[in-house]
Simulated assay, not measured.
Amino acid sequence: MRMVEVQQVFKTFGARSTLVRALNNLSFKIERGEFVGIMGPSGAGKTTLLNIVSTIDKPTTGRVYLAGQEITQLSEAELTILRRDQIGFIFQDFNLLSALTVRENIIFPLTLTGIATAEIQKRLAHFSQQLELGDLLERYPDELSIGQKQRVSAARALMSKPKILFADEPTGSLDSKSATELLQYLATINLDDETTIMMVTHDAFTASYCNRILFIKDGAFYSEVVRSGSRQHFFNQIIDMQAAIGGGVRRDRTNRI
């Protein structure tokens, strides 16, 4: 099943002399169960693309499909239902509610959905175990490390069992240990639950956990790299492509793999 299809998407900001083209005739597809990274130089349009595919923004022209449904013409009420039922989002800044416990933060998105309490508790137990949050459920966000906060954010995003999970630089605020742990959890969720993941990142180490990387430059498709061997080999391919596209420097970071 095709989870994402982007067809000839353009996105412009401003008008006339101040017109900026953020996305330029961009097209690609993501199949169910893929873990896809979006990379490119600063200003390439990565976050703009993520915002459009995740329904936060709309394209100027072009079409976007999620799970076979064309989303660019949906009303705000229809988009609200789509976000609730099919989309999960991991934010770089966590967006946790400080007055709620970890447990309450995780289950909060489901409290107004009509899902039975027993089912909510079942999902809480599942994702708490996957993300190793069982001992943290009664704590508050200000009692957590940055890495723990990001795992709570991931659990909350997954509670609705979204068809696709969007992540915007999810390791950007994390130290290397916490980043590695989160990426391992995401890889496990991708494999065990067949959750489709689309992740924007600038970091080759983070991207090496994906199955495929789409590189964009100046808002247009540039190239892609598909993982076909070890993660070390994939990491080296990503680094080489970053150097070619102008979004990175070829350097040895094998100690991180």
Results as ranks from 00 to 15, higher is better:
Gly33Met: 07
Gly45Pro: 01
Thr48Phe: 10
Pro59Glu: 10
Arg63Met: 08
Arg63Asp: 13
Leu66Gln: 01
Gly68Met: 10
Gln69Glu: 14
Gln73Ile: 03
Glu76Phe: 01
Leu79Asn: 02
Leu79Tyr: 04
Arg83Trp: 00
Phe91His: 07
Leu96Pro: 04
Val102Ala: 06
Ile115His: 01
Ala118Ile: 07
Lys122Gly: 03
Arg123Ile: 03
Arg123Tyr: 01
Phe127Gln: 00
Ser128Met: 02
Gln130Lys: 11
Leu131Asn: 02
Gly134Phe: 12
Arg139Thr: 08
Glu143Phe: 12
Leu144Arg: 11
Ser145Met: 13
Ile146Leu: 08
Gln148Ser: 09
Gln148Asn: 09
Arg156Asp: 04
Ile164Trp: 00
Leu165Tyr: 00
Thr171Met: 03
Leu186Asp: 03
Ala187Lys: 11
Ala187Glu: 13
Ala187Asn: 10
Thr188Asp: 13
Ile189Phe: 04
Asp193Trp: 07
Thr195Glu: 14
Thr196Ala: 10
Ile197Ala: 06
Asp203Glu: 15
Cys210Ser: 15
Leu214Thr: 02
Phe215Leu: 02
Ile216Gly: 00
Lys217Met: 06
Tyr222Asn: 12
Tyr222Gln: 09
Val225Ser: 01
Ser230Phe: 06
Phe234Gly: 00
Gln237Cys: 11
Ala243Asn: 10
Arg250Glu: 15
Arg250Phe: 10
Asn255Leu: 15
